[in-house]
Amino acid sequence: MSSQMDLNDVEYLAQLSKLSLSQKQLKKILVDLRAIIGHMSKVSKMKLSKKIPRTNRLGNEQNVWREDVVETSLNQEVALKNAKRKYNGYFVVKQLVRKTK
């Protein structure tokens, strides 16, 4: 991606985010992105020493874990109740074209 974002960049990012968008939508997003990105990227101009650690979460705790104990699962009906397509207790998706033999 170049310093000035273009339509190809937006298309690539949309693809990476699994969003299929029309050219019109992509163009609209590009306009907004160009407007925002300068403000959003302001940190890249901050001069920060290498020693400063990164904060990626805020919990003070460490080693938060659970014992290896089996708990009740959802029953199958509940697990599937919000699915658009289901079949014999499975979720259903369109066949994924994967193999070319």
């Binding site: 397509r85 079949y87 014999n88 207790g89 998706v93």
Partner: peptide
């Protein structure tokens, strides 16, 4: 094949 259509079933 589900309902005459090639499909993938997902089990979690």
């Amino acid at each position: 094949t589900v309902d005459g259509e090639q499909a993938s079933l997902v089990d979690f």
